[in-house]
């Protein structure tokens, strides 16, 4: 079963090399275990634009969907046996140590 791990963290300045390294190690571990499907880091939320279409008119809003302290900063798609395995993986994502990881099963179509 596929799960998406959405990584929410505070955006405090320059990303440091240790964090990059930690993410690299986590990704390698997931690849080695055959769990990794995909994953990306996002640019800071000041680059976000919200798009909605109402009555045929496209509306734009500068900034992220919700103005919260912790912002979506990246994600992984992981192939796990069940929610317990997905939670175990999510707990190892470096961002879990200071932010929050939302784990959601991917809808199988």
């Amino acid at each position: 079963m596929r799960y998406m791990a959405l990584i929410y963290n505070t955006e405090d300045g320059e990303p440091n090399p240790e964090v990059f390294e930690a993410y690299g190690a986590f990704t390698q571990e997931m690849v080695a275990k055959g769990i990794f499907v995909s994953g990306d880091a996002l640019q800071d939320s000041h680059t976000a634009t919200c798009v909605s279409v109402r009555n045929g008119k496209t509306n734009l809003k500068d900034g992220p969907f919700a103005e919260t302290k912790e912002q979506l900063g990246g994600y992984y798609i992981l192939e796990c046996a069940n929610l317990d395995e997905a939670i175990e993986c999510a707990a190892k994502i470096p961002g879990a140590a200071n932010g929050t990881i939302e784990v959601r099963p991917v809808l199988a179509l």
Binding site: N82, E88, P105
Partner: peptide, 14 residues
């Protein structure tokens, strides 16, 4: 059902 919470007694440190 949908998030596949396993029907198990967890083993190990968990």
């Amino acid at each position: 059902r949908d998030a596949a919470i396993p029907y198990e007694v967890p083993e190990g440190p968990a």
